[in-house]
Simulated scan of single mutants.
Amino acid sequence: MTTETQRDRVGKTRPLDKPWLPWGGAPSKRDLFCWYGIWLVFAYSFAMWPLKPWLIGTNPVLLEALTGTQSAMTIAGAFARVGETSVGLALAAGIFGMMKFCWVFWWAGRLWGGNMVRFLAGSAAGGDAKRPRSLLTRDAPASRWIVGAAVVLAPLPLVPGPIAFVSAGWVGMSLLTFLVLNLIGTAAWTGLFTGLGYAIGRPAVDLAETVSDYAVWASIAIVAGAFLVRAVMRRRGARSRS
């Protein structure tokens, strides 16, 4: 699908029926598959939180593959230092963990373009609400060079990864190019934290094993904290609407 065709599909000439959906008209099978896939990714990320204390000190490589978190990469590197795993496996698991769902957002950009960018940015597509005017959240897509750089830099905390991935699909970037750019940034990020853990070595392993020893209480605290944050956000939302 060319960029022009995408713009025709998601542009102002085809207004959205519902502001909370990134497509207009009746959804196709691809729309529904991608839409539910995105929400499954969010649900999966939430479901992994209670597992982190259990796996961080027992199988950090598996935790890397499941979550792609920096802490898991660091501990996996420390485990490699003490001979519990190999550096290559720690790197591969971290890269896989970070990249495994990125293609879903790229596909969303292919299907819905700027509508999905605005959805992730927190405003209704085509609405009058104020939107963040960053390089990736304007009404028109950013240049391919900017989007490509954003995909490479997506692991950095200040770069909105999902918006960068959606933008890559919006500008018509091929899946192969997207995956190569994503691999470059992910490999560098994984190598940084795996190397940090390898340099720390035994102290990091001991700390992770201590966390796993108290995994039950840590998991309960994580789940309780998540529900508390959600309740506070709902209460604030109710007050703002009243």
Results as ranks from 00 to 15, higher is better:
residue 79 F to R: 07
residue 44 Y to D: 05
residue 69 T to A: 14
residue 51 L to Y: 02
residue 80 A to Y: 01
residue 111 L to W: 13
residue 85 T to F: 05
residue 98 M to V: 09
residue 97 G to K: 00
residue 87 V to S: 06
residue 57 G to D: 13
residue 109 G to L: 04
residue 102 C to V: 11
residue 47 A to G: 01
residue 99 M to L: 15
residue 37 G to S: 13
residue 66 L to G: 14
residue 43 A to W: 04
residue 36 Y to W: 15
residue 82 V to P: 03
residue 106 W to K: 07
residue 80 A to I: 01
residue 70 Q to V: 15
residue 50 P to G: 09
residue 113 G to P: 09
residue 43 A to I: 11
residue 78 A to S: 15
residue 103 W to K: 00
residue 68 G to R: 02
residue 64 E to T: 05
residue 103 W to G: 01
residue 59 N to T: 10
residue 78 A to C: 13
residue 94 G to T: 09
residue 38 I to F: 10
residue 107 W to Y: 11
residue 103 W to H: 02
residue 81 R to I: 01
residue 99 M to W: 07
residue 60 P to K: 03
residue 111 L to T: 13
residue 63 L to V: 13
residue 49 W to L: 13
residue 48 M to C: 12
residue 62 L to Q: 12
residue 56 I to D: 03
residue 58 T to I: 08
residue 59 N to Y: 02
residue 107 W to T: 14
residue 49 W to S: 09
residue 58 T to P: 00
residue 72 A to D: 11
residue 64 E to L: 07
residue 80 A to T: 03
residue 76 A to Y: 10
residue 44 Y to N: 08
residue 75 I to E: 02
residue 56 I to G: 06
residue 93 A to D: 14
residue 53 P to E: 09
residue 46 F to H: 01
residue 59 N to R: 06
residue 98 M to H: 03
residue 43 A to S: 09
residue 48 M to I: 07
residue 55 L to C: 11
residue 54 W to F: 15
residue 70 Q to Y: 08
residue 87 V to E: 08
residue 95 I to R: 01
residue 108 A to W: 12
residue 110 R to N: 15
residue 73 M to W: 00
residue 79 F to D: 10
residue 45 S to N: 08
residue 59 N to I: 02
residue 97 G to N: 02
residue 57 G to F: 11
residue 42 F to P: 05
residue 106 W to S: 09
residue 112 W to E: 03
residue 55 L to H: 05
residue 95 I to S: 00
residue 101 F to G: 02
residue 39 W to E: 04
residue 44 Y to P: 01
residue 69 T to N: 15
residue 63 L to F: 08
residue 37 G to L: 12
residue 85 T to R: 04
residue 95 I to A: 08
residue 42 F to A: 13
residue 60 P to D: 02
residue 66 L to E: 14
residue 80 A to E: 03
residue 68 G to C: 09
residue 70 Q to E: 14
residue 36 Y to C: 12
residue 101 F to P: 01
residue 95 I to N: 01
residue 82 V to C: 06
residue 73 M to R: 02
residue 46 F to D: 02
residue 66 L to Q: 12
residue 65 A to H: 03
residue 42 F to Q: 12
residue 89 L to S: 08
residue 98 M to Y: 07
residue 57 G to H: 11
residue 66 L to P: 11
residue 84 E to C: 09
residue 113 G to Q: 14
residue 91 L to G: 06
residue 38 I to M: 13
residue 38 I to H: 03
residue 69 T to C: 12
residue 101 F to C: 04
residue 113 G to S: 14
residue 64 E to K: 00
residue 58 T to A: 06
residue 109 G to H: 08
residue 89 L to H: 05
residue 67 T to A: 10
residue 49 W to Y: 12
residue 91 L to C: 13
residue 58 T to R: 10
residue 99 M to D: 06
residue 108 A to S: 15
residue 43 A to G: 10
